[in-house]
Design a protein around this nucleic acid. Structure first.
Lengths: 139, 139
DNA sequence: GCCATATGTAACCATTATAGTTCCCAATTA
DNA sequence: TAATTGGGAACTATAATGGTTACATATGGC
């Protein structure tokens, strides 16, 4: 698995937590649902914790829970917490002697910014509650 | 350079060609502007050739040119030709015994589709001519 | 025909990001 | 004290991308 599934796994993990919003959930339990290693989950949730999306507790009866209600957690918050750059990458090099190359960075930057201006509102509209609402009720 | 700059490099390469739309351009010339290896350019342009965006010619006086006017080449066509999957990746695994995990793929798929439905029209609106229009006139 | 030039492509190496794993420490609860 | 749990370091594995070399093939001019 080299593909970038960080956002998908983060949403999945949060959905597991939000499904029983009151209880704490261990990284082992979450990893079991995602089918990965508990350390991978802890690493990812550490980022969400720094972003103020989840809270963690050490020790027995410890684990993770949401830092605020699922309806107040936008998918954009999750995306911003776990994904570094934008959706595209700009090449870092270029021939400064070439009049085309000299302008390309600014031109591509404009294109990418216009695309992101469409994506971000979409990710801000959807919340974790919308995701959990599509799950069956807990038994 | 492990980041995914294929789309950016493809647009850059096409801009070099479209700047002098009448002449043919060698991979060496284009690579010089992008500051990379000619083989990298040929690999990328081979994809654009298969997509009917550029035409190539072997031999002396050979090289690449646009297969149709720059105004008819949408950035979406370029994106579709050089980028494989969507903007996000779905995790391939999951615990089939978990009621949350069982639904996550379909739920995430819905989220991603909604985002792409905003991105695609934006990339279909912009053409290579819009990019070239932001370049200085050829000397 | 010969040769310079150019694409097409295979093969290989380097770099980087992500994922996976093991291990130990710190904190908490019973 | 013992069991449980997150935090994090350190390491390996895998895969995608980019970079490079090499060679076959095609073209145009002499």
């Amino acid at each position: 698995m080299a593909a970038n599934s960080r956002f998908a796994v983060a949403v999945h993990a949060l959905a597991v937590i939000a499904w029983h919003e009151d209880a704490r959930h261990s990284s082992r339990e979450i990893a079991s649902s995602v089918a990965t290693n508990p350390v991978v989950i802890r690493r990812l949730l550490a980022q969400l914790s720094r972003a103020g999306i989840v809270e963690s507790a050490h020790g027995a009866k410890g684990g993770f829970r949401l830092a605020r209600p699922a309806g107040k957690i936008r998918l954009y918050d999750v995306y911003a917490a776990v994904e570094e750059g934008g959706f595209f990458a700009l090449p870092e090099k270029g021939n400064d002697q070439c009049p085309v190359s000299c302008r390309m960075k600014a031109i591509l930057d404009g294109v990418f910014k216009r695309v992101e201006s469409k994506v971000v509102p979409e990710l801000k509209r959807a919340t974790l509650a919308d995701v959990v609402g599509q799950l069956p009720r807990p038994a």
